[in-house]
Design a protein around this nucleic acid. Structure first.
Length: 552
RNA sequence: GGGCCCGUAGUUUAGCUUGGAUAGAAUACAGCCCUGCGGAGGCUGGGACCUGGGUUCAAAUCCCAGCGGGCCCA
């Protein structure tokens, strides 16, 4: 950052007025470059670049100024830079943000109907990583899970399990769910009975409420146990049923009415007029209540968002939603704006598909998260045993989860959220190259070196070669990466950054011996690099929810 | 019928917001390093911007149209 300022100053001194710097595509071209197309004005830009380069004298962090075609390239003085950067990076809170306000993150919020599949997991993984990122950035985070406990899906499960002896098991819910879906298609009268159950629930029938609660509790417990196994935690479970009869609903309807936004539909439903928002709906009306006055999902969703908005006030308010909720979110946002509330910031992600097509819980063609977890741990076990045949069973258990779950999370988080992911086992269980185990391995390497090395003395002189400088530069990027990701929530950039770091470290590892290095200054400089690498990569992995193992 | 997102080596992907140099990686493939700080590694090689227009000194990037995939709207 300071380098950039110095370059700008130097260019100004050389008489350049419009300064727009860019990062060269290749480190061979320097660290910053100034393209001369715009200021050339008819002259040959290469000539202009030459003239400017001659006028600029290297001072401070600027080591070299070289014209290269139509560009003036600025090279950083690597020795001065390394010294300065290492000092900065060695500070204990390097990369972490200062204390900031509250951040409310709602994620997962899947229907409590069955064991989650990997598509659903994408939501939870993205949400969890964003939570960690914001925590690292200095926010006080609180994680919310909106439980849709009054929907048709729960009613179906209540119906499907009511004849069962004993308490239904979570593991069987998917089976029940698939079965009841099939039955409903075959027999329409079942669907009517299911709707009757819902009506009973909403009218406050105690027995029905109990039955729903039983199923929801089993499902929520089952789901959060699985997600908890992956280290994903929630601070609040917000139940939709709590909003069924809340005063909030009345207040909201009242406000809409005052603003003349309510209409009566022909079938008696009350709808919200959203025509001023130009949303891509056939009819710009959002149904809020039934003819009998009871609330519909949209109204409860609005109420929930009002509740959240009031809770954060000035802080961040974030929600992770699948791409199927894009329009729905626009509607909620519009409704909130009528009410004078700010909508949450939303992160959408595309679905995970199977090679043979879409996943469908209803039809049962899904890859369950639990199966993915099991396979990943199995594969990790195999790989660990290849390398450590004598490992104790307990250690193996623990380590295989660290590696297996790491690989699982990374395989999903590394992809930009607006791309569909086609789930393929080989791809997802890749432990080589661009994968979590590759990155984890560099952590183990760095840790082992430091253990063997013992005490690190501050070197009198910092001596670095090109590869070492590249690594330091990459580590020094952490704060700006954190900042920009905390702004746009594109968590895959963190994954990408982790891989780049690890890649440069492996490069460094191959070419810069440490233990055997005779030159004490070089040795200790390298030791410092290993130290800061180890801390940095650990932090970056932590943001992704991936543990750094002590050996593997 | 309408709206939104995506399309980059055989496969998976970064880059697109803010146009700029030789489009960056992984995997697979061909080969090398193999008694070294732990090879889940390093090095070398070939291989890609969906199609057609437009804007621009300059387009993977911006605009328009088409094609293909995903999501949604009663």
């Amino acid at each position: 950052m300071q380098f950039q300022k110095e370059v700008e100053k130097a260019l100004k001194k050389a008489g350049v007025k419009k300064i727009k710097l860019e990062k060269p595509p290749n480190p061979k071209f320097g660290d910053l470059s100034f393209p001369c197309f715009e200021i050339a004005k008819g002259k040959n830009p290469s000539e202009v670049a030459k003239e400017i380069a001659e006028k600029v004298k290297p001072t401070g962090l600027i080591g070299k100024v070289v014209p290269m075609g139509p560009y003036v390239n600025f090279f950083i003085d690597s020795k001065k830079f390394a010294k300065k950067a290492l000092k900065e990076i060695l500070k204990p809170n390097f990369g972490k943000g200062k204390r900031k306000g509250k951040a409310l993150i709602e994620h997962t919020s899947i229907n409590p109907n069955a064991s989650p599949h990997v598509g659903r997991a994408r939501n939870a993984l993205i949400g969890d990583a964003i939570t960690r990122l914001l925590k690292f950035y200095g926010h006080q985070t609180e994680v919310h899970y909106f439980v849709n406990d009054v929907g048709k899906q729960i009613a179906m499960l209540v119906y499907a399990t009511k004849e069962l002896k004993g308490k239904p098991k979570f593991e069987d819910m998917l089976k029940h769910y698939i079965e009841i879906n099939r039955k409903v298609i075959e027999n329409a009268s079942i669907e009517r009975e299911i709707f009757e159950l819902l009506e009973k629930l909403e009218s406050g029938d105690k027995k029905t409420i109990k039955e729903f609660e039983k199923i929801v509790s089993i499902c929520v417990k089952g789901q959060t146990k699985i997600l908890g196994e992956l280290g994903i935690k929630y601070d609040y479970f917000d139940y939709e049923s709590k909003f069924l009869k809340s005063k909030l609903l009345k207040d909201i309807l009242e406000t809409f009415k005052k603003k003349r936004k309510l209409k009566q539909a022909e079938d008696g439903r009350t709808v919200l007029d959203l025509s001023e928002f130009n949303l891509p709906m056939r009819e710009p009306y959002l149904p809020l209540t039934r003819a009998n006055g009871t609330s519909l999902y949209a109204l409860r969703d609005i109420a929930y968002n009002v509740y959240k908005a009031k809770k954060v006030k000035k802080g961040k308010n974030i929600v992770v939603l699948g791409e199927d909720h894009k329009l729905e979110f626009q509607q909620i946002k519009a409704a909130l704006s009528i009410l004078g509330h700010k909508a949450p910031e939303v992160i959408h992600y595309s679905f995970i598909l199977l090679p043979e097509g879409k996943m469908s819980t209803r039809k049962g063609n899904v890859v369950l998260l639990t199966d993915f977890m099991k396979e990943a741990v199995e594969k990790a076990k195999e790989e660990i045993l290849k390398r450590n045949p004598d490992i104790a069973a307990k250690e193996l258990e623990k380590l295989s989860k660290v590696i297996g779950y790491g690989a699982l999370k990374y395989s999903i988080l590394r992809v930009s959220p607006d791309k569909n992911v086609i789930f393929e086992w080989d791809e997802a269980l890749n432990f080589e190259g661009n994968s979590a185990p590759y990155i984890q391995y560099t952590y183990v390497r760095s840790k082992r070196i430091l253990e063997k090395l013992g005490r690190i003395k501050q070197p009198k002189d910092i001596l670095v070669n090109d590869i070492e400088t590249e690594l330091i530069k990459k580590i020094a990027e952490l704060p700006s990466i954190i900042e920009s990701t905390a702004r746009d929530y594109s968590i895959h950039k963190i994954a990408h950054y982790a891989y780049e770091l690890a890649n440069l470290f492996n490069n460094f590892y191959e070419t810069s011996p440490i233990i055997s290095e005779k030159d004490e200054n070089k040795k200790m400089t390298r030791a410092l690099i290993v130290k800061v690498y180890k801390n940095t990569i650990k932090n970056v992995l932590w943001i992704l929810g991936i543990d750094a193992p002590n050996f593997m």
